[in-house]
Design a protein around this nucleic acid. Structure first.
Lengths: 82, 82
DNA sequence: TTGCTATTAGGCAAATCTGCCTAATAGAAT
DNA sequence: ATTCTATTAGGCAGATTTGCCTAATAGCAA
């Protein structure tokens, strides 16, 4: 009999999705001619957060997707089309 | 001169969005005739997690949205249409 | 060069989510 | 009532995100 310590499963992150979403947001932002800082101000989010999302470093939430979509004047669903 | 401790801003959560997303996922799941447990198995997610998402209690992530959409056989963007 | 703006990087604490588990509740059918 | 399945609830620790901040880097214009 041996006792084995089984590590917990990590949270699921799809880096492909994170990267693609970030690129999509960046595209829409640039179409509007906004800087990251400007978008952050309009959303009342931190610049660093916008940057992390665009770079695909974080697995952001539905609420943030809706907030950003609204600010960019696009449908939230559109940000997931890739 | 007084020193004031300013509480940090809470994370942004749009409960309307969370609830609507949950309802949408539930609708699609029921259309497939799946139980929450079955969907959870297919996604390799916890049943409790599926339940919390459907009830709109949590502000879930893009990766999870894509995972669930794939399992339900719908486009991720479709889950954000409401 | 200098100056200015934009982007990227990263640290830190607190908030939140997720995985994992058990249990309670609801509802239907027998 | 009992049994069975489905849903809901909730606790807990660890992982991740977020808010807040400062700084470094890139790029461009004058």
């Amino acid at each position: 009999m041996t006792l084995v310590l089984v590590p917990r499963q990590k949270q699921y992150r799809d880096e492909q999705v994170m990267l693609k979403l970030g690129q999509k947001i960046r595209d829409k932002r640039l179409q509007k001619g906004f800087s990251q800082a400007h978008l952050a101000n309009l959303c009342n989010l931190e610049l660093s957060q916008i940057n992390r999302i665009e770079l695909g470093k974080i697995n952001t939430s539905v609420s943030h997707i809706f907030l950003i979509a609204k600010t960019l004047g696009v449908k939230p669903a559109e940000l997931l089309e890739f």
